[in-house]
Design a protein around this nucleic acid. Structure first.
Lengths: 213, 213
DNA sequence: TTTGAAAACTATAATATTTCATGTTTTAAT
DNA sequence: ATTAAAACATGAAATATTATAGTTTTCAAA
């Protein structure tokens, strides 16, 4: 965690200047292209990170608190590289970039910690893309379902907070393909779907599809 | 450039410990998974960066000197995340990680410079993947050709140093699809191919294919 | 509770991509 | 110069993906 690298003084400095906010589902936290003024500490909730290009959305990741969001922009220029939108109610602290920057220049460890965090999240995104680029749609979708089950909800039964369109923007395929693939999996008894509620019935089989597909 | 952030003392320190090496075409510089001991300063030549997974190669980027290679591993663990292989004869300085690390801890600016460089190259990779995920094969291949023409060789006539298989590992499609697409473009008079030598005849058209395809 | 819009779904047709089989050319080593 | 291996090429069949269009379901506002 980033806070591990802060002295008490630095922490209270940041904390005093910090605003903790409550966000509803589907609120924009940071908008791609707008001035980079805050980094967010997502203490509770789920957020999607996406990139928009010619009206097309690509979802880079779904992030679960506690986590830092927007940190990568520290090293990328003056405006947000991607958008962050809540998928559930969230609690987020906004930390002023100018203040965090001061702390970073004084505290090499904090800088290294932040950087490592940013690099890791980049690495995750890239591994995700590599994975997708080597798989067919059913494999990608199996991967997304397993990700939600194991990394986000720690349960085989969950409410996938993304629409079918969004799942397709995450997987990198058409919406119909997502719908078809999910229906087919349901027919084969691998999952049960009830709108956005998903129940993984045969996890090993789903794992196989992810590995092979 | 990274050297901008070094004091004279630091520079000579690094320089004394540094080995400048001559690499032939198709030599491995850093191997994915091996211990991260050196960062490379590629002063001359071309290098490909790839990730291997279950025997499948994914080419992340083709890098032209002068450039830093392997820097991202600073923030990613103890072994190389990707492999780097020369595509042409190259001159590369190997810089010991332990020594660079010392300099970085002492010099916040150097740290920030290195980090920004790393973040930028991650960003490029991600944009590249996003681009590919939204395009069909002809669009991806057009993009690769334009990249070589504009970013690497500054000429519409060049020797693409990748095999058809490698182009497919870069574009994310099958080898035959690359071959077919290139042949089709040649038949339509958009490019001329003679084995690895490529001549872009109708750049606007290629640009259109890149944009639309 | 009704109603209307958005989202989810389905089937089918059209398109794109991969795979496979086969043959040719190029390259590099002897 | 010869030869084996690798790279390149081609076309056709099989498969995967997208596009189109119409239907049903869901959800929230009136």
């Amino acid at each position: 965690m980033v806070t591990n690298y802060l002295s008490d003084e630095e922490f209270s400095m940041l904390y005093r200047k910090t605003e903790q906010l409550q966000y509803a589902k589907r609120e924009m936290v940071f908008k791609q292209g707008s001035p980079f003024l805050y980094v967010g500490f997502l203490s509770e909730g789920l957020v999607k990170q996406s990139y928009f290009n010619k009206g097309k959305e690509t979802i880079l990741s779904v992030i679960k608190g506690p986590a830092l969001i927007g940190g990568a922009n520290f090293f990328l220029g003056d405006s947000y590289f991607t958008s962050f939108v809540t998928l559930s109610d969230c609690k987020i602290c906004l930390i002023e970039v100018s203040i965090l920057k001061e702390s970073i220049l004084k505290n090499g460890l904090l800088a290294f910690g932040l950087t490592s965090h940013v690099a890791e999240s980049f690495k995750d995104s890239i591994l995700n893309f590599i994975n997708k680029s080597q798989k067919q749609v059913q494999g990608k979708i199996a991967g997304i379902l397993l990700y939600f089950a194991d990394k986000i909800f720690n349960s085989n039964q969950f409410d996938i907070l993304l629409s079918r369109k969004e799942i397709s923007d995450f997987a990198g395929c058409s919406e119909e393909n997502v719908i078809n693939t999910l229906s087919k999996m349901a027919k084969e008894g691998i999952i049960k779907i009830n709108n956005k509620k998903i129940d993984i019935l045969q996890k090993e089989k789903l794992g196989m599809i992810f590995q092979c597909g």
